[in-house]
Computed example of a mutant assay.
Amino acid sequence: MEKIVNFIKKTFNTNDFIPLHEPRFIGNEKKYLNDCIDSTFVSSVGKYVDQFEKEFASKVGSKFAIATVNGTAALHISLILADVKKDDEVITQPLTFIATCNAISYIGAKPIFVDVDLDTMGLSPDSLKNFLEINCEIINNQCINKTTKKVIKACVPMHTFGHSCRIDEIRDICDKWNIALVEDAAESLGSYYNEKHTGTFGKVGAFSFNGNKIITSGGGGVIVTDDETLAKKAKHLTTTAKVPHPFEYVHDEIGFNYRMPNLNAALLVAQLEQLDKFVENKKELALKYDDFFKTIDDIDFINQPQNSSSNYWLQAVVLKDVKTRDEFLEFTNKNGMMTRPIWKLMNELEMFENCQSSDLKNAKYLEERVVNIPSSVIL
């Protein structure tokens, strides 16, 4: 393991502590922030919010983008746009960050967990198809869970660490079963599947700009869609459902104070200018890691899946078992290199332990073996 630590410190050209992923501000960030401050429009109204939404939509190939305060808020609203309501059910993967299940729970809906693929670490279309065929039926154009008698309204796959799941197959299955596809693309800005950007395959998609993401505004998120009606609804809901008026405060439904501040958007406009360079840099780091770990027994580097172009947001390796994983985590963190395990499975958390699940053997295998290693853009 000492060989691994020495290689990574040499790669990052430092003997200091190496974080897992730190942001890089090497462009127009300070310039745009100062301009935003000078304008005095630092809250949710300002030119940078509009500019960012326009440029982001163009970047990922969607018709509309609606900026939010964080990725969880973006996913929450995306599920509302998909008509998910209290007591509905939403299929997702157990191997994901808690925000995926939190957003489902905010509505009062309940997650159902199906397995992931070993190569993508994302929701498996085979597991999804098998679950639906065994447990569900179509009644009045709705997907009904034969066990709970509830409507399965949406499916939320997540592109793990920026590696795309087999999203086209998932979309086709969802279409067949009248289930809305809502993409959790929080980690996959700059990633493509069959040359189409992640987050743009479903009815709506949600991205995150948390402090550790490939580009960041400290927080921040965005909803993307090609549906103009949904885009207008998203902007309305995220702006406290306020009816436009020169001076009166009239709100026509329960809304949310989810609009991204102009100050954050200024930072993101500058960060978006650097995205292509960041992705290229991360791909170069992935090549170095891949070459190196081929020389290490019992550790496999996770490469981008077939038909994908990944942003390699977080670089990851698979160890041979949970014991080796824990030894790896302890040694690296004690020797100045931050590493972390993949998430605990959602169905193993107290809040979701009673949720319906398929066989989750792949998710469990990965939970016990996957570790993230330093992934920052190297200056």
Rank of each mutant, 00 (worst) to 15 (best):
C101V: 08
N102A: 11
N102R: 09
I104W: 05
S105M: 07
S105F: 04
Y106P: 04
I107T: 07
I107C: 10
K110V: 12
I112H: 00
V114N: 00
V114R: 00
V114W: 00
D117P: 08
L118C: 12
L118Q: 10
D119G: 07
T120K: 13
M121P: 03
G122H: 02
G122C: 10
L123S: 03
S124Q: 07
P125M: 09
D126T: 12
D126G: 10
S127P: 13
N130E: 15
N130Q: 15
N130A: 14
E133S: 04
I134P: 01
I134N: 14
N135I: 04
C136T: 11
C136W: 02
E137C: 14
I138W: 13
I138T: 09
N140I: 06
N140R: 13
N141D: 15
Q142D: 09
N145Q: 03
N145C: 02
N145D: 03
T147I: 12
K149H: 13
V151G: 04
V151K: 14
V151H: 08
I152M: 02
A154V: 04
C155M: 07
V156N: 11
P157Q: 08
M158F: 12
M158G: 12
H159T: 06
H159G: 10
T160G: 02
F161Q: 06
F161H: 10
G162Q: 02
G162S: 12
G162H: 04
S164T: 06
C165D: 11
C165R: 01
C165Y: 02
R166E: 14
R166F: 14
R166S: 07
I167K: 06
I167S: 05
I167R: 02
I167V: 12
E169Y: 10
D172C: 12
D172Y: 09
I173M: 12
I173A: 15
I173D: 15
C174Y: 05
K176Q: 15
W177R: 08
E183V: 01
E183A: 01
S188F: 11
S188V: 07
G190R: 10
S191M: 13
Y193M: 10
E195S: 11
E195D: 15
H197N: 15
H197Y: 11
T198K: 05
G199Q: 14
T200H: 08
T200I: 11
G205V: 00
G205F: 00
A206Q: 02
S208G: 10
S208Y: 06
F209S: 01
F209W: 04
N210D: 07
N210H: 09
N210K: 03
G211P: 04
N212W: 06
K213C: 00
I214C: 05
I215Y: 14
T216R: 06
G220T: 10
G220A: 09
G221I: 00
G221H: 01
I223G: 07
V224C: 02
V224Y: 01
T225G: 03
D226W: 00
D227S: 14
D227K: 09
T229F: 08
T229L: 13
L230N: 03
